[in-house]
Computed example of a mutant assay.
Amino acid sequence: MRILVTGATGFLGGAAARTLAAAGHSVTGTGRDPARGAALERGGVRFLSADLRGDPAPLLPDIQAVLHCAARSTLWGDWADFYADNVLVSARLARACAVRGLRLVHISTPSVYNATGLTRQVPESAPIGPRFDSLYARSKYLAELAVRMALPDAAVLRPRGIYGPGDTSILPRLARALRSGRLPRLTRHEVYTELTQVQNVVHAASLALERPAAGVFNVTDGVSVPIWATLDRLADILEVPRPARYVPARVAEGAAAVLEIAYRLHPGSPDSASPEPPITASGVRLLTRPMTLDLTRARERLGYVPLMHPEVGLQSALEALR
């Protein structure tokens, strides 16, 4: 299959492009980092330097399917950028795929569920909006709507907490927080969530590319992970103190909200966005609110079974941060 992978110089897109190429597909990857693009080409991926805010049509000749991984994926930023990079880019790409009859697999996020109040075995059918707990979540949900309106046959994947080799976000951020000694213990009880090893996401995307299954699909490792026990485990690996000073989650979330307002008002430099605060309210909620997802649809319609168990994948990822 001739596949275009957007965001191939990023964490998930890079893993997907390399894995699909190794499986025998003809893969073209887009991105903005020529150095990472050169590394992709050494792995058998044709690289195109591209700004996706432009017309996607020149990227699509001879392409049979598109895996759209590119996104502004952060808990902090300006709405104009989230809207441009996540909503408008996704909408244009979906329309272009619809015109050409191309298969589209769109990567979204379970962050869209965060403001629903649901925490256990959340299904794809959960009512979402109009409130969202971050600009990122709001933009990704609007992107989903735009994709499915332009191309009803598209598959939309919602992988939760992607980690693994090449991760620059979740586990590295937690490692930095632990090393700084500034991370307090935010609950007196354990909080269970689900994560997704990057190869499990790539496996789900591969299945969605190969099978004509339309709609939204939750994706995780399928096993609940104790957040604070995992943080203690990471602290031990890093040989730094475990979080001990207790700060109630409500207090931390309130302080983060105040910080966000202050940072929003910070003028910054004329050519850069406002700086990111050391903590955000949505970041606090990720550590203090449980969430597990219902994988029934992915199992039944995609045939999804996680390839890598978190006991193996997570331990390897934690050890890599030593």
Score class of each variant (00 low, 15 high):
114 N>F: 15
8 A>C: 01
285 R>Q: 11
110 P>N: 07
234 L>V: 03
138 R>Q: 04
239 E>K: 13
3 I>G: 00
202 V>T: 11
296 T>G: 07
4 L>H: 06
144 E>H: 07
40 L>V: 02
12 L>F: 10
124 E>K: 01
259 L>M: 08
15 A>K: 12
310 P>I: 12
202 V>E: 08
22 A>T: 12
41 E>I: 07
311 E>C: 04
315 Q>S: 14
34 P>W: 06
124 E>H: 05
62 D>I: 02
17 A>M: 03
146 A>E: 12
317 A>G: 00
262 A>H: 09
142 L>I: 05
139 S>G: 12
161 G>E: 03
267 P>E: 07
11 F>D: 03
320 A>Q: 06
94 A>H: 01
293 L>K: 12
208 A>F: 02
151 L>C: 11
118 L>T: 01
145 L>K: 13
287 L>M: 11
147 V>G: 00
282 S>K: 06
35 A>D: 13
79 W>G: 04
104 L>S: 00
235 A>L: 12
151 L>P: 15
61 P>W: 09
70 A>T: 05
11 F>T: 10
295 L>R: 06
23 A>E: 15
273 A>G: 14
287 L>G: 09
156 V>I: 15
139 S>W: 12
27 V>R: 00
74 T>C: 05
88 L>P: 07
304 Y>L: 11
192 Y>D: 05
98 A>H: 10
200 N>G: 11
250 R>H: 04
266 H>P: 03
122 V>L: 00
153 D>I: 05
106 H>T: 13
160 R>L: 13
256 A>Y: 01
300 E>P: 01
101 G>C: 02
251 V>F: 13
79 W>Q: 02
